[in-house]
C-alpha cells in the first residue's frame, strides 16, 4: 500500500456514517480532482452508472429465483439472509446483517439509504446514481407512493407500502412476488425476470410476456 500514515480509529457507536479506508482515499482523490477541474463528478457518475447493472444484480436475481422455487431456501432467506445467500456457492459472500423483506399481496417493501456502507452491492450491484441522491431518500420516506409512481409503479390503494431505512448494521433486500404465468419455470429463466429495481422495491419483476422467448 502506498500510504503509511496511522489510521486512527474512533469509537464506533454506529450512529454516524462510516466509510472504509479505501472509500476515504477514493473520495479524497475525487474531491481534489474536482476542485482542480480535472474531473467532472457527473462524468464519473455516468461511467459508474454504465456498470451498475452488472455483476451484483445477477447474484441477487439468482437468490430471488431460488426463493421462488425452493420453499426451504425461501424460509432460510427470510430467517437469515446473510447465511442463506452465503450457502449459494456461485454468489459472492455478502456481509453481515442482510435482511430479506417479502412482498405480499398486502404489502410492498421499498428500501432507502445508500449513503455509506449500507448498500448490499454483493447482491444488487453498484448503487444507482439516483438512489444516492438526497431527494430520493427524503421523498421515499414522506411520499413512497409518489416515488413509486415516478418509477412507473402504481400499486392498489389497499396495499401497504413499507419503507425500510438501512442503518449501519442492517441492509435490506426486497423479495418480490413471483409473477403469475411462470409455473414450471426453471430458476435460470425466473432469474431473468428479476430486475435490480425490483430488489430495491422501486420496481416490480418483469412480466413473462416481456421476456424474449
Amino acid at each position: 500500500m502506498a500510504h503509511d500514515h496511522d489510521h486512527h480509529h474512533h469509537d464506533h457507536d454506529h450512529d454516524h456514517s462510516e466509510l472504509s479506508e479505501t472509500q476515504l482515499r477514493v473520495r479524497a482523490l475525487e474531491t481534489i480532482l474536482t476542485e482542480k477541474g480535472y474531473v467532472d463528478p457527473k462524468a464519473l457518475d455516468a461511467i459508474v452508472e454504465m456498470y451498475e447493472t452488472k455483476i451484483g444484480p445477477r447474484n441477487g436475481a439468482a437468490v430471488i429465483a431460488k426463493a421462488w422455487t425452493d420453499p426451504a431456501f425461501k424460509k432460510a432467506l427470510l430467517d437469515d439472509a446473510t447465511k442463506a445467500v452465503n450457502t449459494l456457492g456461485h454468489v459472492a459472500r455478502v456481509g453481515d446483517h442482510l435482511i430479506a423483506v417479502e412482498n405480499t399481496p398486502q404489502r410492498h417493501n421499498m428500501v432507502v439509504c445508500t449513503l455509506c456502507s449500507c448498500y448490499p452491492w454483493e447482491v444488487l450491484g453498484l448503487p444507482p446514481v439516483w438512489y444516492k441522491a438526497a431527494p430520493y431518500r427524503s421523498r421515499a420516506v414522506k411520499d413512497p407512493r409518489g416515488v413509486l409512481a415516478d418509477f412507473g409503479v402504481t400499486l392498489p390503494k389497499d396495499i401497504e407500502i413499507r419503507v425500510w431505512d438501512s442503518t449501519a448494521e442492517t441492509r435490506f433486500l426486497v423479495l418480490p412476488m413471483r409473477p403469475a404465468g411462470t409455473d414450471g419455470w426453471s430458476e435460470d429463466k425466473l432469474a431473468e425476470l428479476v430486475t435490480r429495481d425490483s430488489m430495491i422495491g422501486t420496481g416490480l419483476p418483469k412480466n413473462p410476456t416481456e421476456l424474449k422467448s
Binding site: D15, L33, C116, A168
Partner: peptide, 26 residues
C-alpha cells in the same frame, strides 16, 4: 496534480466529515 500531503489532508477531512454525520444523512 495533488501531493501526497494533500491527499492525506483530504482523506482525514473526509474521515472527520464521516464521523460527525449521522447515519442516513449525506
Amino acid at each position: 496534480v495533488a501531493s501526497r500531503e494533500m491527499l492525506t489532508e483530504y482523506r482525514d477531512a473526509w474521515d472527520h466529515a464521516c464521523d460527525r454525520t449521522p447515519h442516513g444523512k449525506p
